[in-house]
Structure formats: C-alpha cells, structure tokens
C-alpha cells in the first residue's frame, strides 16, 4: 500500500484538552502530522481542525476511525482531492534591498500582496492552494527571505 497525503477535517467540541487528545492520538500511534490548524466555528460550541497527514490506505482509515472514537469529536471527514477546497497561507519577510516591485508581481501571481513594510524588511502574504504555496516558497528564495511562516492547510468540503 502506497503512502498518500490527505487532509482530514475534524469538528470537535471546543473544550479544554481536546487538542492534546488529538495530537496524542497521532503521537501515540506513530501517525504523521504535516500540519494542523484549529479555530472555533463561529456561533457554535465546536472547533474545526484541518489535519494534513500522510499514510497508506489502512493507516488513513485508522486515523479517521480513531479520531472518531474520541468522545468530544463530532465529525471526521477524510477529504479526497475532488471534493475539497484547500488553502494555505504563507508570510515571508524579505530584505528591503531586494527588488520590491518584482516581489510584488510575484506575490500577485500567488494571490498575495505586500502586507507590511519596515526600515529593513518588508512582509508579503500569499494564500493559495498548498501546492502552489510550496512553489511560491521555492521561487521566493531568489529574494533571500529572512523568515517564512506557513499557516498549515485549511480545508472545506465543496
């Protein structure tokens, strides 16, 4: 069985300790977390998590079932590619000495812009599909970024 990348959405009661239940499940069973994002679902007692993970079919099935087994978890969705919209955000700090106009043009191609400028550095933000963000991170290296921060993947079913 081949390993596959997958994004899993989890809706869980927004109570203390729930994140450690989820991360503990992954750690204790040797499952991989590539990225994890979490935020409350507005107007409810629930939170939404997007977990980016990797594993073969059996492992992915177990991850979904084990997540579901956690008492505070309401819903687990294992997204396959066709039915899901995935986005990721990146913040990148670039020295002022770089060609700012070029960088700005590049950001625009990745759904982004300059969001902050300072004396020595300026900060750009892009938000796009995870694959494209990865690509952006690759390309931006030309401009000697001082720091790159990724948000992790967020996913929503179509």
């Amino acid at each position: 069985m081949r390993d596959e990348r997958r994004v899993i959405s989890v809706v869980t009661l927004n109570e203390h300790g729930v994140l450690s239940r989820i991360s503990g499940l992954f750690a204790g069973r040797g499952y991989n977390i590539e990225s994890l994002t979490v935020a409350p679902i507005p107007g409810t007692e629930y939170s939404h998590l997007s977990i980016e993970t990797e594993g073969n079919e059996r492992v992915l099935e177990q991850i979904v079932k084990q997540l579901h087994k956690l008492i505070p978890v309401l819903k687990v969705t294992d997204h396959d590619k066709e039915t899901v919209v995935e986005k990721e955000m990146a913040l990148v700090k670039i020295p002022m000495s770089e060609a700012i106009a070029d960088v700005e043009a590049l950001c625009r191609a990745y759904n982004g812009s300059i969001v902050n400028t300072g004396d020595d550095v300026f900060i750009v933000m892009v938000a796009d599909e995870p694959k494209r963000v990865k690509n952006f991170i690759h390309v931006i290296q030309k401009y000697h970024p001082k720091e790159v921060v990724l948000s992790g993947v967020v996913a929503i079913e179509r």
Binding site: R58, E61, H68, K69
Partner: peptide, 8 residues
C-alpha cells in the same frame, strides 16, 4: 461495536 477494530 468498535468501528476502529474493524479493518485495523
């Protein structure tokens, strides 16, 4: 009764 036991 435990779905996670099935197919594990």
């Amino acid at each position: 009764i435990d779905p996670s036991s099935i197919g594990k």
